[in-house]
Simulated scan of single mutants.
Amino acid sequence: MTLQQNQLPSLKESINKYNLHAKKSLGQHFLLDPMINQQIIALAGDLTNKNVVEVGPGPGGLTRALLDSPAQKVIGIEVDQRALQLLHELQPFYPERFQVVEHDALKLDLTTLCDSPRQIIANLPYNIGTSLLLGWLKQGQQWTRLTLMFQQEVAERICAAPNTEYYGRLSVIAQWVAECMIMKRIPPGAFAPPPKVYSAVINVLPKAEQPSPELFKAMEQVTAAAFGQRRKMLKGALKNIGGETLLSAANIDSTRRAETLTIAEFDQLARLHLAINA
């Protein structure tokens, strides 16, 4: 049975009904402010005819904003049983446009849930956000855009430039395959319960040219070695993967440190590493 949307209980009523309070063990901090949720949707661009996947919708504040958008379909991925009850209650109000999937997002290929064009828009659980992003970056142009909320420090790491405090492995891999931009910072008080730090929303737009799976793996290996001992000079940090040979072939000074290398230089090292080990 399709219910009229004006019969939809308020977000506060639904939270109280299911006693849905954020769990620290699940990395949950609920964003309930409808104005901020609407602003996040606006940052995701025109959603007309897009299929949108939301990871960790929790009580559904962002979900409701998505369902008010022109998105063709909204799919929520959730593991918290309390939230699932609330989200299933929301389904009859949007029977053709809203789907709930009970699954661990880390163990699920989200591209199998809907056709292109598809986007991910999510306030990610703090404890798995980075792992989720790395998985999605490997899928390249399977996604038209990712609009994601992280702890601000994580967002800074994703978007950092060389020779800055937060530049590291995550910066290199993310910016190698996508354009990454911090779009909005959100204070702790906007969440329930308030986290100890600011959060930030970023846009990740996959580049037209994407690396092969083999090249992506080579980049993972090079950046893991380079930043695993980031205070070491590259000749020492890359020693176990043939660093001297790689650096000489790339004409990169072996006394430099990882944080000084550009994305293009890491790309060069990854391609050489792949060629040498092919």
Score class of each variant (00 low, 15 high):
Arg145Asn: 12
Leu146Lys: 02
Thr147Leu: 12
Thr147Phe: 10
Met149Phe: 09
Phe150Ser: 10
Gln151Thr: 11
Gln151Asn: 12
Gln152Lys: 15
Gln152His: 10
Val154Thr: 05
Ala155Cys: 12
Glu156Thr: 03
Glu156Arg: 10
Arg157Asp: 03
Arg157Lys: 14
Cys159Asn: 11
Cys159Thr: 15
Ala161Pro: 14
Ala161Tyr: 12
Ala161Gly: 08
Pro162Lys: 09
Asn163Ile: 03
Asn163Thr: 09
Thr164Glu: 01
Glu165Tyr: 13
Glu165Asp: 05
Glu165Val: 10
Tyr166Asp: 14
Tyr166Ile: 02
Tyr166Ser: 14
Gly168Val: 07
Leu170Arg: 01
Leu170Trp: 02
Val172Thr: 03
Ile173Cys: 05
Ala174Lys: 00
Ala174Leu: 00
Ala174Asn: 02
Val177Gly: 08
Ala178Pro: 05
Cys180Ser: 01
Met181Trp: 09
Ile182Arg: 13
Met183Tyr: 10
Met183Ser: 15
Met183Trp: 02
Lys184Phe: 10
Arg185Glu: 11
Arg185Asp: 11
Arg185Phe: 08
Arg185Met: 08
Ile186Glu: 04
Ile186Thr: 06
Pro187Leu: 08
Pro188Asp: 08
Pro188Val: 10
Ala190Pro: 06
Phe191Ile: 04
Phe191Cys: 05
Ala192Leu: 14
Pro195Tyr: 08
Lys196Ile: 09
Lys196Asp: 15
Lys196Ser: 14
Val197Gln: 13
Tyr198Thr: 12
Tyr198Trp: 15
Tyr198Glu: 15
Ser199Glu: 02
Ala200Tyr: 06
Val201Thr: 08
Val201Glu: 05
Ile202Ala: 13
Val204Lys: 04
Lys207Val: 01
Lys207Gln: 14
Lys207Ser: 07
Gln210Leu: 14
Pro211His: 05
Pro211Leu: 10
Pro211Arg: 11
Pro211Ile: 04
Ser212Phe: 07
Ser212His: 02
Glu214Val: 03
Leu215Glu: 12
Ala218Arg: 02
Ala218Asn: 11
Ala218Asp: 05
Met219Leu: 15
Met219Ile: 03
Glu220Val: 00
Gln221Trp: 00
Gln221Arg: 04
Thr223Arg: 00
Thr223Trp: 00
Thr223Pro: 10
Gly228Ile: 07
Gln229Ser: 13
Gln229Tyr: 03
Arg230Ala: 04
Arg230Pro: 14
Lys232Val: 00
Lys232Gly: 05
Met233Thr: 11
Met233Ala: 08
Leu234Asp: 08
Leu234Glu: 05
Lys235Phe: 01
Lys235Asp: 01
Ala237Ser: 14
Leu238Val: 08
Leu238Phe: 06
Lys239Leu: 11
Lys239Cys: 08
Asn240Val: 14
Asn240Ser: 09
Asn240Ile: 12
Gly242Ile: 08
Gly243Thr: 01
Glu244Gly: 06
Thr245Leu: 14
Thr245Met: 13
Leu246Gly: 11
Leu247Asp: 09
Ser248Glu: 15
Ser248Val: 03
Ser248Pro: 13
Ala249Arg: 14
Ala250Phe: 07
Ala250Tyr: 10
Asp253Ser: 06
Asp253Pro: 00
Ser254Pro: 12
Thr255Ser: 14
Arg256Asp: 04
Arg257Thr: 03
Glu259Ser: 04
Glu259Cys: 09
Thr260Leu: 07
Thr260Val: 05
Leu261Gly: 01
Leu261Asp: 00
Thr262Pro: 01
Ile263Met: 01
Ile263Cys: 07
Ala264Pro: 02
